[in-house]
């Protein structure tokens, strides 16, 4: 009752306030134009709010770096020196001047291709194994301890073994990606599947869904948020691992480029390559996260 009265009171107050408002808006013709700009203003504002602070940070870091590294004794090149030395790499990612003198974009693409193959394999195998571990108590008892031990093995520790096994650097690098990315996928998928609500299992039982139908119609959609968390961690780890693996296996990738640049003391090139790697890793992470939000829309809220 009290609330209703209050509501009435405020409603009444609004009506009273209206004439006063009208009187204020004398500059109406000028305001008329606002909607057009107004449509862009929030977007513009949020872009500014999100872009300006990191830009300021980068500018400050560059400034500090320039000051710190510009002495004659400095062992690292300052930004200005990097710009003059590695301008071709920065400005044009996709130049092609012979098989070993190519833009960083090409090298990134080669590395990305390896990651794509290794990570896709890890995703498929990881989800299947995760489903097995999540679904069957015995599979969990048998496999989970093994997984827990293996997942702590650093990616590069697998490289000698895979080189010995495959006798070729290309599949070895892909295997390292695979073995790096698979553990978070397995573990998260298993958790997701263990967390499938009993209600959904009951529905599946009443409908007599078979294993395959259950996997595609209940398990995967229900565990999708967990699976995508695993995939996101996995893709990040793959990107970490590929650079290290390529340093050792050689070839065209961005990792080998860094190693090659180090051997010929091209520090500026290395720093440019690091920025490339960072940006691509960031994009990969966001890409998987974005796919996740698209695929799992509706799954999280009930």
């Amino acid at each position: 009752m009290g609330q209703a009265v209050l509501k009435n009171a405020t409603a009444g107050a609004k009506v009273v306030a209206l004439p006063a408002l009208k009187a204020e808006v004398v500059a109406l013709p000028a305001v008329m134009r606002r909607p057009l700009l107004g449509a862009f203003a929030p977007w513009l504002l949020s872009a500014l709010v999100n872009l300006v602070p990191p830009l300021i940070t980068v500018a400050l870091v560059m400034l500090f770096w320039e000051i710190a590294a510009s002495g004659p004794q400095s062992s690292l090149p300052p930004p200005t020196k990097i710009w003059t030395e590695a301008k071709d790499l920065i400005v044009d990612p996709f130049f092609w001047l012979g098989s070993q003198d190519i833009g960083l974009g090409w090298r990134i693409l080669v590395s990305l291709q390896r990651v794509a193959i290794g990570f896709s394999l890890a995703a498929v195998v990881g989800i299947l194994l995760g489903a097995l571990v999540g679904q069957s108590v015995w599979a969990m008892r048998g496999l989970d301890p093994v997984f827990q031990v293996l997942r702590t093995v650093p990616p590069l520790a697998w490289l000698p073994l895979s080189l010995a096994g495959f006798r070729d650097s290309e599949p070895s690098a892909i295997f390292v990606i695979f073995i790096t990315a698979i553990w978070p996928v397995i573990i998260n998928t298993a958790v997701g599947i263990r967390n499938i609500p009993q209600d959904y299992r009951n529905v599946a039982q009443v409908l007599r869904l078979n294993q395959v139908e259950f996997f595609f119609k209940i398990m995967v959609p229900s565990a999708a948020p967990y699976i995508f968390t695993g995939l996101r961690i996995g893709v990040g780890l793959s990107w970490l691992a590929i650079v290290a693996a390529e340093m050792l296996t050689g070839g065209v990738g961005i990792g080998f480029f860094i190693w090659d640049a180090w051997n010929s003391s091209r520090l500026s090139d290395i720093i440019v390559a690091l920025v490339y790697i960072g940006v691509v890793g960031f994009v990969l992470d966001r890409l998987v996260a974005f796919t996740g939000t698209i695929v799992t829309r509706g799954t999280l809220v009930n």
Binding site: N202, V206, I218, S222
Partner: peptide, 13 residues
């Protein structure tokens, strides 16, 4: 023997 579950149990996706 179809069941109408207490909490509807519709698949949210």
């Amino acid at each position: 023997r179809a069941v109408v579950f207490q909490n509807h149990s519709l698949l949210p996706w």
